[in-house]
Design a protein around this nucleic acid. Structure first.
Lengths: 255, 255
DNA sequence: GGCAGTCGGATTGTCGGACAATGTAGCCGC
DNA sequence: GCGGCTACATTGTCCGACAATCCGACTGCC
């Protein structure tokens, strides 16, 4: 840190496989390639870039993971549109690796939840309210099974996110939502009346949506999340404990 | 859609290169490999997995882009910790590709901004306030240059994010923050007094942080973002216009 | 004409081997 | 102990090859 200020940046020749990936990425982000367009065969890319097929393949792999390039059943390459789940799962994985605490999760989830319900109340369509009702009905069937209730709760909040019609908010909310799922399951395993309270809160959400009553929406968002936090404490957990253990234990076996 | 219900799921054998990536990923997420650990040489991985080096390399490329594995100056492989900027830049790129509108951006940025400033007021350290002051001082020097003011504004809000001490919130906020930057520049180019108002708002932020006055923090967050939105309209833009054009035009030349 | 079966070309996944460039470690001489 | 040299290890890139699979065309049959 006390060195002379660096006058020269490190000389770094980017490897060819990375240049290939960057060139394709530029074309996609620049709009010259659109989602759904075929990317061409490996042989064509070999000709265009003038590098070996192995190099092209390594470059493609870089993009494949991010969802910019996608292979269909026939293994041909297409330009893809990275979607939220993929990004969200990476983001939530990163949060786990960074050992964020339950408190951080709670304090971020609360304002996000409130903002989402507010916008959902403005924009919800009858179809989505229908789907929310149906989710509640399905939850009713499995109230005694923590894992299924938690999964349906996650789906419920995903639907609320869609109802908001705001994709920026959705993307912001989803990573934390994915971390909520396993902790909800944990809570439901320890707090017997948890599932009933959760179900009631969901009913109140939908009621607020119907009446377009933002005040009620905010109120129940607060109560719903507070229940969740209190349940976490009643399960004997520390709010400042990193959530990684919980997450890993419960997500084992996920594909 | 009216076909007989699919009774068999598609037979899909995952290619070897993907299995390699998944195996390594499992070990990292499962904690058996920790950030900073060496991943071993390609030859070692070839021995362990029993596949060809090309296959191993393709698998590594899948992880490399996501930041789970990383190579240092000597190009050796290490287990990495995916960090926010990387995830955020991917997420914001996805938002651009999905053609989100300025309105969505604004309506998501507002609650995120308010939540962030509230938590920053609770947790800000003297060091971070110091850095914010310094950011304001640097902005003072370049008030006439929209691009530099916009960049410093972005840095300012990044610092507020750090001051909040909440990494979940930070991760949620950063993608939209990256989209704010180019629109801020656009606004500053069209609204002459914009830079002064921005600077004043920043001063009020820091003042609120010092006095730990949440009410003032919320107030100025609202005003700051409203200025931004009004500026966008005064620049002749439509709130429901996708932000892709603006973003692409201004981000050209970014590495 | 419509349909199942067959065939060949195209494409991807995987392999083995090769070599230059570059980074690392050990040895040497001083 | 230190700088320089050398041998080795490792990565980036290339080449050529082959099996598995997909796709389209062609065929013959009804």
């Amino acid at each position: 840190m006390s060195q002379a200020p660096a006058r020269f940046s490190r000389i770094a020749s980017t490897p060819a496989y990375r240049q290939v990936a960057e060139a394709i990425e530029r074309d996609i982000v620049g709009g010259r390639l659109r989602a759904g367009d075929p990317l061409g065969t490996e042989a064509e890319l070999v000709r265009q870039f003038g590098v070996n097929r192995s190099t092209v393949r390594e470059g493609i792999r870089l993009l494949e993971q991010g969802g910019l390039v996608r292979r269909d059943a026939s293994r041909r390459l297409w330009v893809g549109l990275p979607h939220y789940e993929r990004l969200a799962s990476r983001a939530s994985r990163a949060l786990v690796l960074h050992q964020v605490t339950f408190r951080e999760l709670y304090e971020a989830a609360l304002p996000l939840q409130i903002a989402t319900i507010e916008q959902a109340i403005e924009h919800a369509t009858p179809e989505l309210i229908e789907q929310l009702e149906e989710n509640i009905a399905r939850t009713e069937q499995v109230l005694g099974e923590p894992d299924r209730v938690a999964a349906l709760d996650s789906e419920f909040h995903s639907l609320i996110g869609r109802a908001s019609g705001n994709r920026v908010l959705q993307l912001a909310r989803e990573p934390s939502e994915m971390l909520v799922l396993p902790t909800t399951e944990l809570v439901l395993r320890h707090v017997k009346e948890g599932a009933g309270r959760l179900q009631h809160a969901h009913r109140m959400y939908v009621d607020a949506l119907r009446r377009r009553d933002k005040e009620a929406g905010r109120l129940w968002a607060r109560r719903h999340l507070e229940d969740w936090r209190k349940g976490f404490e009643r399960a004997g957990r520390d709010l400042d404990e990193p959530i990684d253990r919980i997450y890993l234990r419960l997500s084992r076996g996920a594909s």
